[in-house]
Design a protein around this nucleic acid. Structure first.
Lengths: 259, 259
DNA sequence: ACTTTTCCTTTCACTCAGTGGAAGCCTAGC
DNA sequence: GCTAGGCTTCCACTGAGTGAAAGGAAAAGT
């Protein structure tokens, strides 16, 4: 930008991105002052940039004065090629799985040392579920997370094992215990959690394998209130769906079009 | 920005937004030159801005050199409060509707004189469907579009009636004929299309009404290969789901949480 | 009712970040 | 071998961007 800056070297574009990046799942709505604090920019600078972003539709200003992400950015963001092939292929299987189990269904991939949720179909509202599409959660406390954890490269595993943060009283925080669980995941072909992320929610998950039938590209999971009763049934349903997705990924898939 | 500009008055932020806005559904991937042309900016300027956006994760550069929207922007875009209440409430009903009909299911709202698709569950791949979440299509050529058209304010209706663009040989392009169809939609409570948007695809749609039971807030539709056979069955299923969504919108809904 | 605090917005003197034509480079096509 | 087109770097020029300071408006505290 022009002169008189306190942090030379920072471009306007990088500042605008800092403003946008100040928003996250726990901060979907921010006042000017908080926005400036989170973006680490002076208030007047933030104000000017935010105003321009509002003009461009990238941000919206509520009547309360708070800023939220704008519809224009929603539009543009949806154009990002985030595993479109996988999501398109998996979509019908997720629907089937949901129909068969009535549980919340998740499709997730690993993004560095975190789980990134690509798709979700909500099930029974009485089971609490924190993750939505776009959410990132730690690898050790969710079903899909443990699957992706078990098949992650060694350096990522070490990184994640070094930071097993407690989320609930049931979260596994011992590296040794987690290693044993991951061994079992690889042996049995599925992972489970019991209130390790959220009290009142348990989950089961299985890996989705790529064309070679080896590499794990994603994880498929369900969240239920209690796993003891029908663990076998859920795991079977998950495995059937995961196999189907894997097979479809191998087959050439035509693009679908129309209204 | 600094001096020497050919278009004084345009800020860096507005230029960066122009670069991002150069992407749309038909241009998800752009070379530098095309990006510059679409953003109406000189190539070196576009190059510099795009490079900064890549640094910030807002854009990604493919090995081919083409730019695409980056994952960071996907993350941020998903935080936009685009009818989150409606989408959350409608989601389980869409799943049910899909399970019952096996057709592609759509949830859409009107955005000025266009249909904006909020949710989609893909059905049988053999029926071609062009719309995805975030798509905007004209009001006159789709099922959900006609419903939203029929219940739009007069000025919007006039605007849309003045530009009935032909999409396929079956698209209704006569304002008089469209008015008659809209009358029928209001009378019968549902709309249909027959290959008016895409050859090989027909659709049926119904309105979703707000708490007052009058105001139409959204439209619910299905896309199938042929409507003649089971129009009645589909319309009934649609109406049941739409009623359910409308009722749930009235009821206080708790937020769901967990992994 | 008065004071204090906090947040939003505007102003303005200062100056360096941004600009884009031109040139160099590389690759693809003929 | 030559031409065309796209990508990247260079660099002289300058006005867009900066942010402390101050002014206002509104909420919180006394």
């Amino acid at each position: 930008m022009a002169g008189n800056t306190s942090t030379p070297g920072a471009s306007v574009v990088s500042r605008a991105l800092a403003v946008l990046s100040a928003f996250d799942e726990d901060h979907r709505s921010l006042s000017l002052t908080r926005l400036a604090r989170r973006a680490r920019l002076p208030v007047p600078t933030t104000y000017r940039i935010a105003s321009e972003l509002v003009d461009g539709g990238a941000l919206t200003r509520r009547t309360s004065g708070e800023y939220v992400i704008g519809r224009r950015l929603w539009d543009i963001g949806l154009l990002a090629p985030v595993q479109t092939g996988l999501r398109q292929t998996a979509s019908p299987f997720l629907t089937d799985l949901h129909a068969a189990t009535r549980a919340t269904v998740h499709l997730a991939i690993r993004d560095r040392a975190q789980v990134l949720y690509l798709e979700r179909i909500s099930g029974n509202a009485s089971v609490p579920v924190v993750s939505t599409v776009g959410s990132r959660l730690p690898l050790h406390s969710t079903g899909v997370g443990k699957v992706l954890f078990a098949y992650a490269p060694t350096n990522i595993q070490e990184e994640a094992l070094a930071s097993l943060a407690r989320v609930t009283p049931y979260t596994v925080t011992s590296a040794a215990q987690m290693r044993r669980q991951l061994d079992r995941v690889r042996r049995d072909g599925y992972a489970t959690t019991s209130e390790e992320m959220t009290l009142g929610a348990c989950s089961a998950a299985v890996p989705i394998r790529a064309a070679d039938g080896e590499t794990v590209v994603a994880a498929l999971g369900v969240v239920v209130a209690d796993l003891r009763r029908d663990r076998a049934r859920l795991v079977t349903a998950l495995q059937v769906a995961a196999q189907g997705i894997g097979r479809s990924l191998r087959a050439p898939h035509r693009r679908s079009r129309v209204d």
